[in-house]
Design a binder for these strands. Structure first.
Lengths: 353, 353
DNA sequence: ACCAACCATGTTACCGGTCACGTTAGCGGT
DNA sequence: ACCGCTAACGTGACCGGTAACATGGTTGGT
């Protein structure tokens, strides 16, 4: 009691290392007249201490402007209250929504999200997992299901729950929240064939590490083989162009040059398809009269174009939300019965087909 | 070599708390035949130990699969090697690019990025800063320059560098990397007037906490007052609609209903302007013949529309990159001479005006 | 009245690193 | 031979919390 006001004094030990004059839990304990353990209890579970003790501690926290040090907490309790998220690129708004969903669920529970992006390079993914592991996250969230062998091994060794997403695999590392890109493209092709289109061409950006794009291409090829046995599926790709509308325009030109008989273009993304639809206006190509066009992702623009873009809608935010829920359950010690969740997809038929 | 496979043995001390069988620095030290201090030195500055010792330690790290524990490092050294980033929303691709720039620079330097989003709510910003402070980040990056008083106080008390961005203020909390939204809109209005437009209307989404949108509106109003003294500037806003193209269509309808004489619409964002331009096609409105349209942000779509969208280009990725560089310099102990960096903006005149 | 069960709180050791400082060996100069 | 200096490495204390166990006071059933 009598040492009230000594908070800032903090014996000026010349060996003191930290530059900060940080208030510690001991300061709060002194101000409240209890032990540090009681302060710790009050902060992590207020009901575990007596009501007036709690009030005194809360007052002491306010008075001293105490801010808990998570690093110490982490070290002592072996829980970091963080989740590491690894995505191909932040700039793609569709992944951003997933991250938004993820953090919408995790932040209120006291977890914080580390973000890293791989730019579709497997080696970067591996080095990210490696460096993130040093933070001892309580969970991992990763977009994609294909990793280097070492990445998979690293993830398994962490001993914490791992969610893979945005894709599908029979053998997830741990948990899975995704859908089949392959099945989605089959649905697109079925739809086009049903509408009477016969000369389909797939067009997309194929970055070496973008396995979701590869799965889509594979779906196109498999469906094509089923509908048109013996015919070689038409495929036009660029490897290094950025995922922007101008690339869609470029791809459209390639399609018309290499496969002029094409009556429907299946784009690997709405971004590309939108660029192509807009370009068709200037080129005097009627959509879907001369050429049908499909996209993937159901971006904002898909419904605003004239004609509207037929595309595959993915519940991107929901992927984040469900992943967070799975992680939470596991991080809180519960067991999860269904380790794989298929969020599916929806074919949205609009004017472009 | 021969003790391969014994890693998991680790004397089963019944009082051992951590659930993990984690390899510690002591394990590495034992394997290499040195003290933990030497291992620590080898990891943080390889040149500070002898070359053959270094080789032995590196071999021991590999053999034991040691992963450094940053929490312990943080606690002991008082540096967390993290940066907290707070943005209004992750979904807006334009902020995503800034974050991409930020982490592109910080990750290679060993810093990791915590991400939180406020949804344009000041109270959420405050609670984010509060909870992030517990992680003791070595720096803060925030989009926006307007905060609650308490937020500002919290930021200052952390004692670490803080970058505010995407806006401008004569009194930053610490560092500033941004531009004047106000000046940008003045430039837009000047351009329209120069082109002969006389009946301008501003249209945008005005979320209560979106100060950048407010600054743009203010810029419009001030420029309008200068060009058309005495006239009341026309302004159409919605408060709660999401920032999507459909909202642009909605705003266009409002403009035509409330101010039918309008000959130029100044949108607060490219997203809205793009929706409006696309809708004009369907409504038989000629752009820029009947109506000129401008946007803000120079999104991908702006250059692909017909007509192209006149807009203001912001170096959004560069904001992240420069912010990271400033933070790095300060986190590494250097002093920064120029605490405020104006990345400017560029008016891109296209067909829509 | 007695003892078990329980609640609120304190005590002790420890989490896994790093800092400050100490020690040792090797070297050249005088 | 002595001294000082430097490079390389070790020792002990400490960072700021929390788990496990211990303690003292209440309560309630028999």
């Amino acid at each position: 009691m009598s040492d009230e006001g000594q908070l800032s004094v903090r014996k000026a030990d010349s060996r003191r290392r930290s530059a900060t004059q940080a208030v510690t839990m001991a300061d709060v304990a002194r101000a409240a007249g209890v032990s540090t353990q009681t302060v710790s209890r009050a902060l992590r579970d207020p009901r575990s201490v007596g009501p007036d003790t709690l009030a005194r501690i809360e007052e002491a926290v306010r008075e001293t402007r105490y801010v808990q040090n998570f690093a110490a907490s982490h070290l002592a309790s072996n829980r970091s209250m963080t989740v590491a998220a690894i995505i191909p690129t932040i700039s793609a708004s569709i992944f951003a929504e997933t991250i938004q969903g993820l953090s919408d669920v995790l932040l209120p529970e006291g977890y914080q999200v580390f973000l890293g992006h791989t730019d579709y390079v497997a080696a970067r993914e591996e080095s990210l997992v490696r460096s993130f592991s040093g933070r001892r996250p309580d969970g991992f969230f990763i977009i994609g299901t294909r990793h280097t062998q070492e990445t998979t091994a690293l993830l398994k060794r962490t001993g914490v729950p791992v969610v893979e997403s945005w894709s599908w695999t029979p053998r997830p590392v741990d948990l899975l929240v995704g859908f089949s890109n392959h099945a989605a493209l089959i649905r697109v092709v079925d739809h086009l064939v049903e509408r009477g289109y016969r000369r389909l061409t797939f067009a997309g950006v194929m970055k070496p590490g973008d396995h979701r794009a590869k799965e889509r291409l594979k779906g196109f090829q498999d469906a094509h083989a089923r509908h048109f046995p013996g015919e070689t599926p038409r495929v036009v790709t660029v490897a290094s162009s950025p995922m922007v509308m101008a690339t869609g325009v470029e791809l459209l030109a390639l399609v018309r040059a290499q496969h002029p008989e094409t009556d429907a273009v299946v784009f690997a993304s709405d971004v590309l398809a939108s660029g192509a639809i807009l370009a068709c206006g200037g080129l005097g190509i009627s959509v879907p009269g001369d050429l049908a066009i499909t996209g993937f992702g159901n971006y904002d623009i898909a419904g605003q174009l004239t004609p509207g873009l037929t595309t595959v809608a993915i519940a991107s935010k929901r992927i984040g939300v469900e992943s967070a829920r799975l992680l939470l359950r596991r991080m809180q010690g519960a067991t999860v019965d269904d380790r794989a969740l298929d969020v599916g997809f929806e074919l949205l038929v609009r004017g472009s087909t």
